[in-house]
């Protein structure tokens, strides 16, 4: 069965991971701009955006996987408004690249005023260029407060279609807030933080399959690029139908991402 991993940071992974994902049925991934583990310079970002839009699609294609991406300065670096504005100013030229689907991942990390200001500026950019939005919610003790703050900022943009915004990394204490306000919700499958395959399956059982997707958010930290197929196996083990499993791991990401005219799957390739 084919699947999409709609949030995975493949520049941090080896080609062996592409091979394993392809063997598990992965046909496409989307890669939001991410923190490298250290704060970069503006020029460092330009190189990174070139990597995301030119090099990584070629690496993925070697394994029959289509590569799409999102542009932003990640919330972990957005607490520095000078750097953040320098990076935001270079984003518009990259939005024209054929694999760029929107603005992301933007949001909050430590729930600061600086981060909130840069979030607003990112959203304004997405509105100006009519882009999809992928939102990162903070980690651990900061998640609940940050998720609510993010939705307060989004509310200020009355022109935004909430069905074109995905709020990622939801857990049991935030998923209902996100879905009730009309946004899409992403469940990230991590070994220690965020959701496990078992808890993600619980959330699907409690809140249904509408406006939700699963992703590995595989990166340079503890993470698992095969987390989506492992969750499909967990759903199967628990007695979910193939239709439900396919909806969560393929149809729903297709539905959300197809709102960008650049998202086309070539399943014959």
């Amino acid at each position: 069965m084919k699947y999409i991993d709609p949030h995975v940071h493949m520049v941090s992974r080896t080609t062996d991971d592409y091979q394993r994902m392809a063997m598990a049925g992965c046909v496409a991934i989307t890669e939001p701009a991410f923190w490298a583990g250290y704060d970069r310079s503006g020029e460092g970002f330009r190189d990174y955006f070139i990597q995301l839009t030119e090099n990584e699609p070629k690496r993925a294609a070697q394994y029959g996987i289509q590569h799409f991406t999102w542009m932003s300065i990640n919330p972990k670096e957005a607490d520095d408004p000078v750097l953040a504005r320098e990076v935001i100013s270079m984003i518009p030229s990259f939005l024209e690249k054929p694999n760029v689907l929107g603005i992301g991942e933007i949001g909050l990390n430590k729930n600061t005023k600086n981060e909130l200001q840069i979030l607003e500026e990112h959203i304004a950019l997405a509105v100006e260029y009519n882009q999809l939005i992928l939102i990162h919610t903070p980690h651990l003790e900061d998640k609940l407060k940050g998720t609510l703050l993010i939705m307060d900022v989004l509310k200020q943009f009355s022109q935004i279609d909430r069905g074109r915004v995905l709020i990622d990394h939801v857990e049991e204490h935030t998923v209902e807030h996100v879905l009730n306000q009309g946004y899409w919700a992403g469940m990230t499958l991590y070994p220690d933080t965020k959701c496990t395959p078992e808890r993600a399956t619980d959330i699907i059982e409690m809140f249904g399959e509408e406006r939700m997707w699963l992703n590995s958010a595989g990166d340079w930290g503890p993470s698992d690029p095969l987390a989506v197929p492992k969750t499909r196996l967990e759903m199967q083990k628990r007695g979910h139908t193939q239709k439900t499993i396919e909806k969560m791991s393929f149809e729903n990401p297709c539905r959300f991402l197809s709102q960008s005219k650049k998202f086309h799957l070539n399943l014959e390739s």
């Binding site: 430590k110 600061t112 005023k113 609940l144 407060k145």
Partner: peptide, 8 residues
């Protein structure tokens, strides 16, 4: 979760 409403 952090329940503090202050935003630094």
């Amino acid at each position: 979760s952090d329940q503090d409403s202050e935003v630094p």
